[in-house]
């Protein structure tokens, strides 16, 4: 292998490594625990969707979840 290619390969490996480092060091337990405690306090898993007030009318399966499964980003209203 020629040197520039080795350098390129090493660069890719460094990218992979830094990615896995970030992945490995992420405080998973802290993040999930906070959310679980939040749910334990409020007894609900409400996804904080940032939708307009009139859109949050009704979701048949889960009334407290705002309806997001609408097609209007495909079809114009």
């Amino acid at each position: 292998m020629i040197k520039p290619f080795v350098a390129f390969a090493v660069l890719l490996v460094i990218l992979l490594f830094s990615m896995s480092l970030h992945y490995g060091l992420f405080p998973y337990s802290k993040a999930t625990k906070t959310m679980q405690e939040m749910t334990a306090l409020t007894h609900m898993t409400h996804l904080s969707l940032s939708v307009g007030y009139d859109e949050s009318v009704y979701n048949s399966t889960y009334p407290e979840m705002t309806a997001l499964g609408r097609m209007d980003f495909v079809y114009e209203r």
Binding site: K30, T34, M35, M38, T42, T45, H46, L47, S48, S50
Partner: peptide, 10 residues
């Protein structure tokens, strides 16, 4: 802030 996914607008 870790709970922002579910508690941002709470």
């Amino acid at each position: 802030f870790q709970s922002n996914l579910i508690a941002n607008d709470m």
